[in-house]
Each structure stands twice: as structure tokens, then as C-alpha cells.
Design a protein around this nucleic acid. Structure first.
Lengths: 222, 222
DNA sequence: ACAATTCAATACATCGTGTTCAGTAACGGC
DNA sequence: GCCGTTACTGAACACGATGTATTGAATTGT
């Protein structure tokens, strides 16, 4: 967060006609720092982790850290950004086939992805880093959700009865809260398939069906 | 966050038979520190605010701060706890009358409360303080929501068709996301009544009604 | 006006940060 | 395999923020 020129550009100076293969040490170091950050933050909280803790856990010198990142914040931002491009890449193919039709494929993919990168997702969803990571994540997901809703509405020629932004926020908030709850559980009571299936039912049939009401004789909501 | 004995107990040594009125200076100082924290965090983010910034903004000496709180964290925790007891007090009367029947009275109350304490709510919902404040808030709200759901189900003799914890998380996530979005808007496009009304409709009639579908010929969800 | 206690101001030890640089080890390309 | 290049080390340094302690002055409740 210091007012500093970003030094974290080990530019892939184009070698010969080659693929400009990144130095092996570099990859190792980046991964080590990334993993150290994630596991330490999970254990001690973001503010409770010093740069020296990270480098120590990664078996590196403190000086090395500053060769890659300007900051603890810089490291976290990079880690989260990387996660988001990976997620988008996995999601993209499911999107084109999804502006009409759809089952909850994208959502399932997210839950599976979260299961693989469990600690990082926990870190983000806990709001570590003063919520910056969470905001990044939320932003991407709501943007994608809004686009899906919009495309679907246009494709079917219908107009939402409620503020479309509100709908987007509500939907994102709903599944993200469930994801956060699900990913924090010690013993996985639900599989990704079950969790997303429930979210789907909830969305499709409504909260009153889910609560157990038989008819539409349902009163308000808390 | 330092391993320190909590010194922040200026005990209300009971005076005479009086109401144990807290020293006026003390109240003034506490409020000043509270307000300074909130507005500074909104502007610069939690990590970007020094204790000295707070005391300076509150026109106090840095030494004074440590007479009241051990930490920046301690101050934030206290502020959030105070908010939560205030919120619970406002909500309690609406709860007893709400395990049957209900309109969305409690929810409306929360939105109104958020409007009054706008900056503090923004701070919390942004996840400042590594999400500790947000977790506190979420915890209280989901606990209350779960209790409401449980009481209602028992009162009506129905059993939820989905994991009740999932339902609780989903509902809390939904309205909290909408609250966060609503409270961050610069020009209040929606009144508290409108916002909660929409959430109510959404919950009552379901996402597909809200999206604009006429019948139940609705496909899945994103 | 009096006693109590809150607040100011200063000084101090400590810790984490971010930078620098000379020396060493590991890498990729040929 | 060697060699030029690049990544890492280790230590030292200045700096800023934290938390503590102490003394004297200002305000308060009574």
C-alpha cells in the first residue's frame, strides 16, 4: 500500500523466437509465497501475518519477497487476481451455452473450484485484507451474473418486475453466503452437487416451497 | 490484537444511589474516537488509518486513546458490539409478534437503522478490519433469522424441505447483499420501504416472478 | 472551593517495514 | 560440460507506527 513504483515486473524479455520460458526458480518462489500467505492468513488472520512470517514459511529470504511484490497487499491482490482469471477461464465455456436453457452448471463449477482451492476461498470470503479480496471476487461474480440475467431476459423477451440490479445483488449474495457457509464446514456435509442443487431448487421453487409450505397461503417473511 | 490485559474498563464505580452517571468528558471522548474511526476508515480504509490519525481527528492526545482502548482493533470491536446491542434492542419487540403472521417489519427496521448509521454500516459491510466486524454482524443476524425460521416452522407444524441452515444462510446473504448495495449508493434510488418491499416480494413470489416470467415454464438458474 | 480523575505532552523502547548491496548459488542456452 | 545471466542470501540501515510511563495542567461532580 506504500506509495511505491511497482517493481513486480520481472518482464519476460523476449529471448530468441522461444516461448520466453520463465525461470524455474521464479515459479517455485511465487508458488511458495502464495501458499505461505494463504495458509498463514487462514491460521493467524491477515493482520497477524508479517512479511517475515511469509518468507520464513516459504523458506526464503525477506529480501526476495520485495523482489517480487511491493507489499503484503500486492501479494494478496495478485493471488486473488490469478484466481479470478482461472475461474473465468473455467466458466467461460459454460456461459455461451447458458443464456438460454441452463441448469446450474456455472454455479456447480464455482463450488467445485472452491473445493479445490478451499483455503484461498475461505480467506477471500472471510473478508481478509479489509475486504478488498472479497470485493474483487464479488465484483466479478455480480458482473457475470448481471450479464447472464440480461442476456436471458433479452433472449426470452421479458422484462424483470423488480430492479434488475437488486435482483443481481440478491442472487449473488444468496449463493455466496451459502458458499461461505459450506466451505467453512469442517466435515463436508454436502457435496458440491447437493449444495448447488439445493440453491437451484430454492431459486426455482421459491423460499416458501423450501420452508415446507404446501400452498401459496404463505405469510410474509422475517 | 496485542497480547495485553484489557485496560478499557473505566468501571462505573457506583456513586451514591445515583444512576452511576458516566463522566461527561468520558462520553465525549468515546464518541469522538468512535466517530473519528468511522469516518477515517470510510475514507482511507482500515489499514490506512493510524491511531494518531484517529486522535488527531478527534482532537485528542494519542496517550488518551490508550487510556480507553488497547488497540485500533479493540476500538472497532467495541463500536460494532455497541451497534449490535442497539440493533437487537430495536428488533426485539418486533420479534415476539413475528413468529407467526409477519410482514417484513424486522427487515425494514434494519434498513432504517442502516440509513441512520450509514457510514458504520458501510464500514462493516465492506469487510473492514479483515472481516471481523462483518462476521460479528452476520453471526447475530443469521442467529436471529434461524430462530425466527425455527419458531415459525414449529408454530405452523411444517418441516423445511431443504437443509434449514442452508436456508438461513441463503436468506441472510440475500438481504445483506442488497443492503450492502443499497447503502453504498450515492443517491438513494430506493427508500428503505421500497427496498424491503422488493426483498419481500422476491422472497414471497420467487425469483422467476421477479425476473418477469409469467408461468412456471421457467428453466433453471445461472 | 475541593478532591478526584481525565487529559496533554513528552520521551522512550520496540517492532515491522522497505531499501540497499556485495557475495553466492542456480539456471538456461549453446 | 561450460559460461554468461539471473535469482537468491544475509546483513545492515533509516524510518514510521506502536504501546508504555510519567509529570503537570485542566475539568469535573459535589
Amino acid at each position: 500500500m506504500a506509495g511505491n513504483i511497482a517493481r513486480s515486473q520481472r518482464v519476460n524479455r523476449e529471448g530468441s523466437g522461444h516461448l520466453a520460458t520463465e525461470d524455474r526458480r521464479t515459479r517455485r518462489t511465487r508458488r511458495a509465497l502464495r501458499d505461505a500467505l494463504v495458509s498463514l492468513v487462514i491460521e493467524h488472520g491477515y493482520a497477524g501475518v508479517k512479511v517475515e512470517d511469509i518468507t520464513e514459511h516459504a523458506d526464503l529470504s525477506r529480501a526476495t519477497f520485495y523482489g517480487y511484490y511491493t507489499d503484503k497487499d500486492d501479494l494478496l491482490d495478485t493471488v486473488v487476481s490469478d484466481l479470478l482469471v482461472a475461474l473465468r477461464r473455467e466458466l467461460r465455456p459454460l456461459f455461451s451455452a447458458s443464456s438460454e436453457g441452463f441448469t446450474g452448471k456455472p454455479l456447480l463449477k464455482i463450488f467445485q473450484h472452491a473445493q479445490e482451492e478451499r483455503d484461498l476461498y475461505r480467506l477471500i470470503l472471510r473478508g481478509e485484507g479489509d475486504g478488498r479480496a472479497l470485493r474483487q471476487f464479488t465484483e466479478v461474480c455480480t458482473r457475470a451474473g448481471a450479464e447472464l440475467f440480461r442476456a436471458r431476459a433479452e433472449h426470452l423477451g421479458i422484462a424483470p418486475r423488480l430492479d434488475p440490479e437488486l435482483l443481481t445483488q440478491a442472487w449473488a449474495g444468496e449463493w455466496m453466503a451459502v458458499l461461505a457457509w459450506w466451505i467453512e464446514a469442517d466435515s463436508p456435509a454436502l457435496s458440491p452437487e447437493q449444495a448447488t442443487e439445493m440453491l437451484l431448487s430454492l431459486s426455482l421453487r421459491g423460499r416458501y416451497w423450501a420452508a415446507g409450505f404446501d400452498s401459496e397461503t404463505a405469510p410474509g417473511s422475517p
